[in-house]
Amino acid sequence: MRTRLVILGVLVAGSAFATDHNNIDSGRPLRFDDAYSIAFRERAIELGLKFDTFRRSSPSYGLKAEYKVGFAKNQDIGIGFEPSYSTSDRRGDVGNVELSYFNGLRREIDNTPALAYRVDVGLPTGRGSRGADVRFRGIVTKTVGQYDRLHLNLDLTTSTQKTAGERQATAGLTVGYTKPLGYPTQFDRTLVAQFGIDQSRDTSRGWVGNVGLGIRQQMGVRSVLDFGIEADVFSSKGRNPAGLRFAVGYSVGF
């Protein structure tokens, strides 16, 4: 079940213009969203590869493929797949299927931030998965200073099937920060950073804090390359936080 949480936390379908370096999707490369859907009638494919983690002698590798459609103004839906391979188990897993819905409620107007929410459903198609996970995420995006933006993501996740030693519902909070790099001479790169805390599904563990840093680089008119690194930095109880996670991805809109 913890595996599914990681999927929901990091790899669910994203928001915004997936194929513009300035518009931020969860998982590409960090875990937060901005408050903008992809454009009406836009379709986007996002591909990502993640390594978890550098500290272990036998890391796991995960692939993410996601397809999104802007089916109405300010709204998109998506479906994502995440096959993975564990070097310690020496076997792969088709992974869970993620369905997502994003709704951008309002853009940033004057001093009022942009607001959005998204709902993700993780279907238990992966090996050993049981029950569906449902995550609700509220999103706030606010410009700070001239060009930088803050993104507040508040997550509430619940599962249709809980086992002993698991919490029925968990919460999480991520503060993302984006800063376009190169202005006013270059316009194709954005720095992304985050600080987040997530409540562990495992009742023996408490809150886990994480930080992340990454870059989104415009490659073509509708394609973006991203790479980022995340690390858990503290845990309120239970075992020590896990090591580094590295993600690289490529998104294209059409």
Partner: peptide, 19 residues
């Protein structure tokens, strides 16, 4: 309207032929 209301261009084989 408070929505961003972004619209995508018409899907077509010629898009970005300007390049």
């Amino acid at each position: 309207s408070p929505g961003a209301d972004h619209l995508f261009y018409k899907a077509a084989p010629y898009n970005w032929a300007i390049n």
